[in-house]
């Protein structure tokens, strides 16, 4: 019992960066434990994603889909993984942290009666006695070492902290698994999802993020300047809670403790103060740039490059300089 199962929600036409990171986690967990890892693709796109997933170094790529897994619900996904594990041997079941796994992994832990570690940053060790991880606590201000008693445990990993696995020498075996019926909970129904449409890259996929704070004073004022900068850089747009609360941008753009946790190559923080809850979502970005009028703003404590300036001057200037050099 040394193997790791990585569960990937197969809802989109392509594997996301987070999915690849989850496989990377699986590969690391496998080497730490002296075992192998398998992938379970769960959901309507399972079959069509299986050939790509087979190149990630797993022993087997399992696919499972059914009408009840068509639209994601926590209840059906937790029950599906539970059913899949029946009669199989494993030490760790893992997935990348996402709004879905935040919901169904703890439910699954309860169904299986196994301990769970949330949003881990690093695998310290894994043996037949215990698995040990590092994770962030207290709004990302401290790191904690957590120990889970083996034989079995559940874990979600922070995608930005795990590299995709190296290209596999041999493709995985692909195996279709029949989903049992009765996965959906009779008391739960999915009504619909409303997403802000945008041509910009997804926050979790982007190499560069332009993040806007309350200092931009909204869509009629500074936000269009930031959007123009983002488009010049091919960057994704992010926001603070203050911006989302004000209704200036939709909730899926929020970065921080309550929103998404990101770590792009470059994070450009504009007119945002750098509250601890915001820092919790971006402090691991490789290079942080801050533009703020207040030289004492805490964002400067984590910034690699700080520009004390009025964003209404600095952002258009920056865009102009970038445009002049041809993007």
């Amino acid at each position: 019992m040394t193997d790791t199962l990585v569960v990937i929600q197969a809802a989109a036409a392509e594997l996301s960066k987070s999915d690849l990171s989850a496989a990377g986690f699986g590969s690391q967990a496998a080497s730490a434990a002296g075992g192998v890892f398998d992938i379970l693709l769960l959901g309507p796109m399972a079959s069509s994603l299986s050939s790509t997933a087979a190149g990630l170094g797993a022993r087997t790529v399992f696919t499972m889909s059914s009408g009840e897994l068509e639209a994601y619900t926590a209840e059906a996904y937790a029950s599906a993984v539970e059913a899949f594990l029946e009669g199989r041997s494993w030490r760790l079941v893992a997935a990348a942290t996402s709004s879905s796994t935040k919901e169904y992994f703890p439910r699954l832990a309860a169904l299986l009666d196994v301990p769970m570690a949330s949003d881990v940053l690093k695998i310290e060790s894994s043996d037949s006695q215990r698995v040990v991880f590092t994770r962030a606590v207290f709004v990302g201000n401290l790191l904690a070492t957590v120990e889970l008693e083996a034989p079995r445990a559940l874990v979600t990993c922070r995608a930005s902290e795990f590299e995709p696995p190296a290209a596999a020498a041999e493709p995985s075996t692909i195996q279709e698994v029949e989903a049992p019926s009765g996965l959906a909970h009779p008391g739960k129904s999915f009504v619909g999802i409303e997403a802000a449409s945008s041509d910009r890259p997804d926050l979790k996929e982007a190499d560069i993020i332009v993040s806007v704070g309350r200092g931009t004073r909204g869509p009629g004022e500074g936000i269009p300047l930031c959007e123009k900068l983002a488009d010049t850089l091919g960057a994704a747009l992010g926001a603070t809670r203050a911006v989302v609360d004000a209704g200036w941008m939709a909730n899926e753009f929020q970065i921080g403790q309550t929103g998404k946790i990101v770590a792009p190559e470059v994070y450009i923080a504009i007119g945002l103060s750098g509250s601890i809850q915001h820092l919790a979502g971006m402090r691991n970005s490789k290079t942080i740039v801050a533009i703020n009028t207040d030289p004492e703003a805490p964002i400067f404590d984590v910034a690699d490059f700080g520009l004390v300036a009025d964003l209404f001057d600095a952002v258009p200037e920056l865009t102009a300089v970038l445009e002049k050099r041809g993007g």
């Binding site: 196994v114 301990p115 769970m116 570690a117 040990v132 590092t134 606590v137 990302g140 201000n141 401290l142 790191l143 904690a144 070492t145 957590v146 120990e147 889970l148 008693e149 445990a153 402090r283 942080i288 400067f300 984590v302 910034a303 690699d304 490059f305 700080g306 520009l307 004390v308």
Partner: peptide
């Protein structure tokens, strides 16, 4: 079956530059 066994501070980040 799950416990915290230790804490560490975040790695110090070298101070950035003002431009």
């Amino acid at each position: 079956r799950s416990r915290v066994t230790g804490f560490r501070a975040l790695e110090e980040k070298s101070p950035g530059v003002r431009i």
